[in-house]
Simulated assay, not measured.
Amino acid sequence: MDPATIIGIIIAFAAMFAMLMLEGASPFSILLPSPMIFVFGATIAVAVASGTMKDLGMCARGIPKALLGRKPSVASRIDALVELAGVARSEGFLALEPYAQEEEDRFFSAGLQSLADGVDGEALRQQLEDDIDTKAAEDKVPAKFYTTMGAYAPTIGVIGTVVALTQALENLSEPEQLGSMIAAAFVATLWGLVSSNLMWLPIGARLGRLSELEVQEMNVTMEGLLAIQEGSQPLLLEERLRSLVPSSELAPKRAERAPAEGEPA
C-alpha cells in the first residue's frame, strides 16, 4: 500500500480548515448540505453522462485503487526474472511451468506459461504487447473519468452560486438575511474548486501514475521473458533490465548488497 494520496488529501483539507480557523471563521460555515449535494451530485452525474454505464463500474473501483493502491516493485520483478533465467538455462523452459502456476500476477504467469509451452519469440512478443496495450487502455477510463470530474466541478460550483444568488436577490426586502444568503451562495463555488483541486484531479493523476508504473513493470517483464527465451545469461539480463528503469526505483545490485546475517561477506 502506498498512502501518498490519502496523506496528501488529508493535509490539503486540514490546511483549508486551518486557514478558516486562523481567519476567525467556523469550519462549519462551509459545511452546508444544499451546495455540497448539488456540487458533488451534479459533478458525478455529468461525468457519468460523458461515458457509459459500464465505465461507471470501472471508475467506482478506481477510488480504492487510488487511495490504497500498491506501487509495483520493478526491482523485485527484475530479481525474479534473473532467477528464472538461471533456471531456464540449467533446467530448460519446461522447468518454468511450476513457477507460472504459482505466480499471482496474471501477465507474468501467462508469459512464463508460454515460455514453458515453447511459443516462439515473435508470437510471444505479440501476445505480451497486446496485453500491455489492453491494460493501458483500460486504465485510461477511470483516470479520465476523475479528471473529467475535476474539469466540470468548478463550473458546476458557479452554477450553484448563480442559482443561490438568484434566490438571494428575490429577498431584498429582508436585508438582515441578505448577507448570510450571499455568503452561503458562494459556498457552492468554493466546493466546486475544492472538490476539483483537492479530490478529483489528484485521484485522476494518481490513477494515471499507477498505470504508468504498472505498464513499466509489464514492459520490463516482457523484455525479461523474451531475453530468457533467447538464452540470455542472468548477469547480462540483470544489467539490461536495470537500464530500462530509473535508478531511483531500483534496489542495489546483488553484488553490491550487504550480505545477510549468517552469509559470508
Rank of each mutant, 00 (worst) to 15 (best):
R106C: 08
F93S: 10
G192P: 08
Q127T: 09
A42Q: 04
N171R: 12
I37Y: 01
M1W: 07
Q126M: 05
E249T: 05
V158N: 11
G24Y: 11
A49D: 05
L225G: 06
G62N: 07
L226H: 09
L198G: 10
A151R: 12
L241K: 04
A260P: 04
A123E: 12
K144T: 14
W191I: 07
V39L: 08
E256K: 08
D117A: 06
I10S: 15
Q177T: 13
G51M: 12
V245A: 13
I78V: 09
R89K: 04
F38E: 04
S247P: 02
A100I: 07
G86D: 12
P72Y: 01
S211M: 12
A185Y: 07
F107Q: 03
T189Y: 03
A75I: 00
G62R: 02
R257F: 05
A18K: 05
P3W: 07
L207D: 12
L20V: 03
C59A: 15
E129F: 01
A258I: 13
G51S: 09
A255C: 04
T189L: 14
N171M: 15
A265T: 05
G62D: 10
S196Q: 04
A116I: 05
T221F: 08
T166A: 12
A49F: 06
G231H: 05
P33C: 04
L235D: 15
P246N: 09
A110Y: 00
A164S: 15
K135T: 06
S26H: 08
F17N: 10
A88E: 14
T147N: 14
D120A: 06
D79V: 00
L210E: 14
V158G: 10
W200N: 03
I37F: 07
L84M: 10
T43G: 08
L210R: 03
Q127I: 00
V158D: 14
A143L: 10
A4Y: 04
E122R: 02
Q177K: 13
R61S: 08
R254I: 09
L112C: 03
A143R: 00
P64N: 04
E223Q: 14
A151C: 08
R209I: 07
L22Q: 13
A183M: 14
E176L: 13
F38M: 13
